[in-house]
Amino acid sequence: MSGRVIVITSGKGGVGKTTTNANIGTALARAGKKVVMIDTDLGLRNLDLLLGLENRIVYTIVDVVEERCKLRQALVKDKKNPNLCLLAAAQTRDKTAVTEEQLKKICEELQKDFDFILVDCPAGIEQGFQNAVAGASEAIVVTTPEMSAVRDADRIIGLLEAKEEIKSYKLLLNRVRPNLIKSNDMMSVEDVVEILSADLIGIIPEDTGIITSTNKGDPIVNDDNSLAGKAYNNVARRIMGEDVPFLNLEEDTGVFAKVKKFFSGLMGKEK
């Protein structure tokens, strides 16, 4: 078995890399895939928090690199899903504790046992980014419909294009607010795609549920009623090669819309 190594990156901080990682990872695991997530944000680790695994971390990636433990020992199993593992980052060290070569080696080793290796990249374009990208062959660039995030994504895509190991990259548009787009106060999905001229793999609506799910340490894809959770699930399905249409983010906005949809469904006019 040779798993796919996907790096999730953005350039700008705070656009939702780690949230995306936790949710896509959980969704893939729920679909029966064996998934391992690597947190490469040494010194500022968060991925364990989002998964609620903070208390279970004994060894970190730095312990593996410095041969204080075996790679297998450092993998933390998820509470709910046995298919999901986490290789946590060290909180007490900085980005220089791991080199590109070492990360590449870890990825190669994990490829033997897992279907998907998701690498959570730190913000920025320095050593941390270079490390995270080193072992990957695919990339997901997370951005939000804000000019600053789009600029940084542009820069990141430029850097990814220059890397030979990265065979493909996809764009994930996070924190989209359909109401603001409607009132012309936010860049539309089309605008972002046009500027970055990259393929889209998902559109995630802004969802307050993300905040509670982060605080609880339970990824939102586990909540079947959440729109953001659905969107993340669709991203996972697209990664697995399914052809899933993008969610119509406006459909769930009001009771009236639902009623209208119900009737148009009855009349057979639904598109």
Partner: peptide, 9 residues
């Protein structure tokens, strides 16, 4: 050159 020049290039 037949490609888009991105930020930083």
């Amino acid at each position: 050159v037949q490609r888009t020049l991105r930020s930083g290039q």
